[in-house]
């Protein structure tokens, strides 16, 4: 529970994307603002579908938005 191994730069991308608000992003991807807040704080790892929808809003590949930090330790 709590912090996950998946980090993201949604917050930075929002600001670089015409200072998009959390509510605007939430409306575009079809979730509540609370969910965007939780994703940005790392309190919730979104479903694959939602992650793709967020990446699509910023016109970026998924890996540029979300990073799996536990990859090295689990692959060994």
């Amino acid at each position: 529970m709590g912090q996950s191994h998946i980090s993201n730069n949604v917050r930075n991308l929002r600001f670089n994307h015409h200072e998009m608000t959390q509510q605007q992003l939430a409306d575009q991807v079809g979730v509540t603002r609370q969910t965007i807040v939780a994703i940005e704080k790392g309190k919730y790892s979104p479903s694959l579908e939602l992650a793709f929808r967020i990446a699509r809003v910023f016109k970026l590949p998924l890996e540029d938005v979300f990073t799996y930090e536990g990859a090295d330790s689990t692959n060994k």
Binding site: G30, T32, R33, T35, A38, Y44, P46
Partner: peptide, 9 residues
Amino acid sequence: EPSFADELD
């Protein structure tokens, strides 16, 4: 109030 429950809810 949110009009729907999303995946987190």
